[in-house]
Design a protein around this nucleic acid. Sequence first.
DNA 1: GCCAACGTTGGC
DNA 2: GCCAACGTTGGC
Length: 170
Amino acid sequence: MWQQDTGEELHRKTRNMKYWLVKTESSTYSIDDLKKDKKTHWHGVRNYQARNFLKDMELGDLVLFYQSVNEPLGVSGVAKVVKIAYPDPSQFEKNSEYYEEKSSPKEPRWFCPDLKFSRKFKEIIKLADLKKEKDLMDMHLLKIGSRLSVQPVTEKEFDKIVKLAGNERD
DNA sequence: GCCAACGTTGGC
DNA sequence: GCCAACGTTGGC
C-alpha cells in the first residue's frame, strides 16, 4: 500500500499537499484501531486552535499518528484525509462526553474530518528518538508544554519521520 | 502520582 | 478586556 502511495511522491509536488500530526491516547484509539476500522471520523477535538487546523485539512493530506500518555510514546503510523471537516456529530449527542451545550446544527462549534488508515510503522518512532533529531527540533510536538492535539508538520519533518520508520511495513 | 504548562471561565 | 481560579494535558 505504501509502495502504491509513492505515486504521490510526484503528485504532491504538483499541489499544495499538507502534513499534520494528531495526538491520541493509544488506550482510547490506537493505530491498530484505525487499521481495523480502515476509516474514522476524527471527533472529540475541543480546542479552538486544533479545530482550526482540522478545518484546514484537505483531501489527500497525510497525518502522523502520535500516541501520548501511554507508553511507548511516539509516532505509530500515518493516516490520510479522505473527507474534509464537517460538523462533529458528537457535539449534539446529549449523552456523549463530547456534548457541547453551546452548539446547534445551525451553528456548529466543532468539526471533524475523516481519516483513513494508510500505514502502521513496524516500530513506533519514540518521542525520545524524535527529540534526538536536529531536523525535528522545531516541531510543535517537541516544544515544552505542547498540548496542541492537532498540529501542522512540514514536509521535511514528515519525510524525516517516515524515513526514521524505514520502509518495512507492519 | 506529581506538577508545569497552558486553555478556559467568569467576576469585575 | 484583565486576570485569578480552575481544569486538563501529558511527560516524567
